[in-house]
Design a protein around this nucleic acid. Sequence first.
DNA 1: TCCGCTCACGAAAACGTTTTCATAACGCGC
DNA 2: GCGCGTTATGAAAACGTTTTCGTGAGCGGA
Lengths: 346, 346
Amino acid sequence: MIPTIKDVAAHAGFSIATVSRAINAPHTVNPVTLDKVRQSIDALNFRPSPLGRQLRGERTRLIGVILPTLANPVFAECLQGIDELAAAQGYRLMLMTTQYDADRERHAIETLREHRVEGLILTVADADTHPLLDDLDRSGLLYVLMHNDTVRRPSVSVDNRLAAFDGVRMLIAHGHRRILMLAGTLAASDRARQRHLGYAQAMQQAGLAPAPALEVDFNADELAPSVLAHLTSGPNRPTALFCSNDLLAMVVMRGLRRARLQIPHDMSILGFDGLAMGELLSPPLASICAPNREIGCAAWRRLLARVTGTFETHEATSPKLTLPHSLREGATIAAISNRTETSATT
Amino acid sequence: MIPTIKDVAAHAGFSIATVSRAINAPHTVNPVTLDKVRQSIDALNFRPSPLGRQLRGERTRLIGVILPTLANPVFAECLQGIDELAAAQGYRLMLMTTQYDADRERHAIETLREHRVEGLILTVADADTHPLLDDLDRSGLLYVLMHNDTVRRPSVSVDNRLAAFDGVRMLIAHGHRRILMLAGTLAASDRARQRHLGYAQAMQQAGLAPAPALEVDFNADELAPSVLAHLTSGPNRPTALFCSNDLLAMVVMRGLRRARLQIPHDMSILGFDGLAMGELLSPPLASICAPNREIGCAAWRRLLARVTGTFETHEATSPKLTLPHSLREGATIAAISNRTETSATT
DNA sequence: TCCGCTCACGAAAACGTTTTCATAACGCGC
DNA sequence: GCGCGTTATGAAAACGTTTTCGTGAGCGGA
């Protein structure tokens, strides 16, 4: 069915060795021969199978990518960065998603290892306590984490703690004092932990009492009544919410609107991720922006440096590469004046 | 470095044939032997290389996916559907994006063919006039299109014409008479054409004059002044916009807001795609919904049916599979009363 | 005792490449 | 004319599997 190098050799009347040379080292074969071989290749529409090459111990030029989900554009943006560079450098990507499921993570790593990927770019729930990553270290398969916030492993991310710190300080600068942090079911994630740490630090520095993160069900159509009560009732209700990611922020905003709260008048919202889509919202979502695409690119560069044995200057000092974050001051944040405060609580 | 079946054989003291049998047909080997082999496999952490298997002419269980971009969640949603089924059925996905670039499309197909994918799931700009698809037909590599709207090729999509027809009829039912269709740079796409056809039909049926689609630059930060003028000035300005996809609708909405127009009071907006994210907007975006995830799933099923030689009942009648669309009546559509109409034109 | 059958296993071929080594032809200087 | 280097090519090994075929041992039946 699919033509092999043998078919080409037979068609051209030469040996497979000559065909192989015609493909890989054209200057070593007689121009006349070269021409004939090339004609046969075109005639049969032959493409050398990477299988044969790989089998010979050549590089597979295959990189595995493991992401929790594509429903969250954060990961789609990272993947875009990776894909861009991979395509340009002639590498292929093998993609698997895990839905944050440990079994699927294990299975993905297994599968990609079997396929002899040269390296792995991945995001896991919690990189600090992840046994699979220890396995990876032991097995010698190279990998780089994206977004995971750990000093122990090769990773690319923003400084989640500092970023959250900066963001919450901004809320405080706008006059907010009762600020709550909301997190999705991924409260067991290293990022969420770091972000909560930053939140708490900013609060304490301003002499305010940090609260534990409030967990919100991501997939529910409405905010749970208990959560809603927490957010809206009593004189001590929060005036601003720091959501641990943009998607969560959008879900929360919808929930608040359905409860007839106006944003930002009745509640200010700050997200985390800097999704491009957030800017298209109304009002545009304020967010702590991670350079997602760039994180993907940087992860790619790091991985490739390790794969090809090139040293990166950073590598020497720390396995962790921190990229700068930025604040996007969207219209979902209102300044708190005494008047507003009063009218809201009466 | 990576252990091979030979290493296992040596370690266990048997031949590679026995090891292979222990893996693939355990019942044919002596239980005692089996046990020893398994211990060696565990000890060396051996995983059979798919390369060897594939080389033997086994199935590669590899499917190629070619998408224009992941920046548009439509495609990410499709990919999720594909990935879900692929993972469950033990197939691997090789992903390439094209940014709607013909060269990259060609290159992607080449690359995936080289890797001996068993089939291809892809979305192209214009399936009717796409020479690469003719090449695919000729080469015998199986493929299924997603979203592309053509009767000539194996594809899964909604009925774009009918869907647009229904959507625009809804606008008309809300009292709109001056309705404009906006399209991105992909005016040369089969989907956009079909959607414009549906728009025109709905207009004509209501005795209204359809206008040519207005092209909008997707990536610009602001709407072009000429476009803005078109939308806002004069007594004949449109009261509703039908955008050829949701992302475009969001960009347009932002542009209109910056021009101080209120949605839906000053302009109604209808999108196309039914992005999950649209529901989180304020106001929630009205849209003609395609079951994107389901389109991915259906494309997968069709492809696998063809790959494995199973016949699908649909297949006999037409290569095109049409899934039902639905209308999401978001709050971006306002009813036109005479009063509103009058106040807007004065 | 010997035939034939089953069972457990090994040797080897096959898959599609790349690469090393060998070989044949040829021209050149002696 | 002979050895030598160069050039163009072919034969064959290697890569990691699966599978076909063969073989030897053990055993029951005649």
